[in-house]
Amino acid sequence: MTALVLLDHEGGQIRKAALSAVTAAARLGDVHVLVTGDAALAQAASQIAGVSKVLHAADARYAHELAEPLAALLVSLAGSYDHIVAAAGATGKNVLPRAAALLDVQPIPDVVSIVDAQTFVRPIYAGNALATVRSSDAKKVLTVRSASFDAAPAEGGSAPIEAVAVVDSPDVSRFEAVQLSDSARPDLESARVVVSGGRGMGSEEKFHALDPLADALGAAVGASRAAVDSGFVPNELQVGQTGKIVAPELYMAFGISGAIQHLAGMKDSRVIVAVNKDPEAPIFQVADYGIVGDLFEVVPQLVEELKK
């Protein structure tokens, strides 16, 4: 059996989450990957360990991973594959369901575990239940959670690169612009340590109180929905049911109450720390270590302690 992985990229780099999709696909069979954009991306794809063929769609219409042309391209390639896989990120979730509909397949989103070639485990109800589902479709279309599969090594492979031709698709969409946050910090979804702030951070300015701590730990910064909605930080930092799903070695929550929608995005972290001035905050029910106190006092103290 052979699986085709759509490798998504952002800012000229293959997303780390896509490497987890390669690992998941390798459990299902031989792995081919489809990548759009320039030749450098195809080169990078060919070096991923475990990939046996790279399909490169170099045409400009695919460069921004617009769903309409890319889903049509996937459909044209699907004949040779049993599984079509992508990371459960913005691109995978935008493109794969469209391709699945065109293939008359019910997609299986957010896979966290593979039981066999047609049986998969996925969380429902904000991760409050795990459903094991078996697909009766001839082809399986799935997105996988990067937090649940290790990333395939970015180097070590030497797969051949094959150019793929353009296919017709409805000319109904146009890419206009993109604004990417140019953070020097590690990627939220793959960071070893995540430092997150909630409504308790108080303002955009005061949110920066977390910066020295994130610097000291080499951590990515995350946030609750309330912090994003209040304009403290941009949307791409939201952790939770409807934001990013993370499972770092260490997750530190400051001024976050612990609503189920937030827990859905971080409760698989190995160690959870919570700092909250309310001793009854539900976040303490999932925290390995908690401090009841004012985060604006605790954070600078932590930074001092880490220097020792």
Binding site: G89, S173, L180, E189, E236
Partner: peptide, 14 residues
């Protein structure tokens, strides 16, 4: 305007 993994993107649709 669309919320994507690393920020925001704008597309125009017929």
């Amino acid at each position: 305007s669309r919320e994507i993994d690393g920020g925001t993107e704008q597309v125009s649709l017929a």
